[in-house]
Design a protein around this nucleic acid. Structure first.
Lengths: 171, 171
DNA sequence: ACGATTGTTGAAACAGTATAACATTACCCG
DNA sequence: CGGGTAATGTTATACTGTTTCAACAATCGT
């Protein structure tokens, strides 16, 4: 579940990144195969880039990288790939950042909750059913039929809080 | 608390709109006075426009309306006003729509939860402490210090669900 | 194998959202 | 009044995302 073993939802600082990208790709392949969705070269590249960055990445950053290895890439190129990946739950869009990030659990399409560290730009995806249920229940009380939840929390992650505390002591 | 009396968080279809805008403006005035913040003519107009629309409104829509009554309005004109209003908790930004809407409870700056109807574009602001607390608790467990919550739920409001059902029976 | 259908990509232009940078004016306080 | 700060004017630009149409490739039924 949490390939980093830290239990914080954030990737550990020194984790085996190549392996983590490879694992994500294998999951994506499996998901697409199961649904007869075509994970083309382009889509795969965008997916890999998102995982390689391992932090929220903007469409035009992806576009720049695409262009460097493939002439003729244009905005629709990257947005179409992103749309496909979003549709299949392989990535998420962080609305508060206008950025995209790989999904840690692409088995079933879903919307999790995101903790976004403002210091180091790392993101933890929570998928806490309690939170989602509470929102659903409240909406239901009001007669509101939920289609989609966007839950994004910005702040400071544990690592950065520590680092900040240490700087504080030094000063 | 809920000036509409519907209890759904959504404004009632036939509520006294002029009064509702006037009330909001009075609250804004009071908040700014208490903080020595200057609710200038421009800022007041943007605030009024947001309340008059009574639904999520885009920056460039506001700009168009500003221009019609005030030559020389440019993007920064409206964005600066929006920044001021956001800073003082008088309005909210809906990240998932890139749109802005008046805050129903501007006494203390805060971030509520939003139910966004995809059919009629109406928005309910919840401010449910349970939801906020649960998110805070979960983040705290992971050592994450929360600065800001963005919780936006899209779907169909009770009125539109009913209307849809009726259309369904007719068909 | 064949064409029809559908899905994917290429390419150019465009629409919508937001900020940078700098000049100018209005306001407040001593 | 003078001097400083906050607010606005103005121009330009950066960033984010869509529309459109044409070309190409995979799939499917026959």
């Amino acid at each position: 579940m949490d390939s980093t073993g830290t239990g914080t939802g954030f990737a550990a600082r020194g984790h085996d990144h190549g392996q983590c990208v490879a694992d994500a790709l294998a999951m994506a392949e499996a998901v697409c195969a199961r649904r007869n969705a075509r994970l083309t070269r382009l889509r795969r590249r965008v997916f890999e880039m998102l995982w390689a960055a391992h932090k929220p990445t903007r469409a035009y950053d992806l576009l720049d990288r695409l262009r460097s290895e493939h002439d003729g890439a244009a905005p629709p190129t990257v947005y179409r790939a992103l749309d496909f990946l979003l549709e299949h739950g392989l990535i998420h869009k962080l609305e508060s950042l206008n950025a995209y990030i790989g999904c840690v659990q692409p088995d079933a399409p879903h919307r999790g909750q995101f903790l976004i560290c403002e210091d180091c730009q790392s993101v933890a995806e929570l998928d806490d059913p309690d939170i989602a249920r509470r929102v659903l229940a409240k909406a239901h009380d009001l007669g509101f039929a939920v289609r989609h939840q966007t839950i994004e929390v910005s702040g400071t992650c544990a690592d950065c809080s520590e680092a900040r505390d240490e700087r504080g002591r030094d000063a």
